[in-house]
C-alpha cells in the first residue's frame, strides 16, 4: 500500500476513502487500527519501514517532523525547541 501511495492517483484514493484503500491492500485489522489512529510510533514498533511510513504521512497530511515528535513522545512545538535552528522548517 505504501508503495502504491507513490502515485498521485492512489494518494487521492486514500484521501477519499482510506477504509476502501486499506481493504484493497488486505491490511490486517491491527494494521488498519494503527493507521486509523495515526499511530506512527505504533507503526514503527510493529515493524514498518520508516521510508514506507513517510508515504502514509504524506497521504494523511503529517509531515516528517510531526510524525517524529509523536515517536519521541513530544508535542510538535516541544520537538522543534530541541533543534539547533528552531525556525528551519
Amino acid at each position: 500500500m505504501c508503495a502504491a501511495l507513490c502515485s498521485p492517483a492512489e494518494r487521492e484514493a486514500f484521501k477519499r476513502d482510506e477504509e476502501a484503500c486499506m481493504a484493497r491492500f488486505a491490511l490486517t485489522e491491527d494494521e488498519k487500527n494503527l493507521i486509523r489512529k495515526r499511530d506512527f510510533k505504533g507503526l514503527i514498533e510493529a515493524g514498518m519501514n520508516i521510508y514506507a511510513m513517510l508515504k502514509i504521512g504524506s497521504a494523511t497530511g503529517n509531515s516528517l517532523y510531526r510524525m517524529g515528535a509523536q515517536m519521541r513522545g513530544e508535542s510538535y512545538e516541544a520537538f522543534l525547541s530541541t533543534r539547533n535552528m528552531k525556525d528551519a522548517v
Binding site: K41, L64, A69, M71, R72, T82
Partner: peptide, 8 residues
C-alpha cells in the same frame, strides 16, 4: 535517526 524514540 528518523525512526522511533531517537528521532532527531
Amino acid at each position: 535517526q528518523l525512526q522511533g524514540k531517537r528521532f532527531g
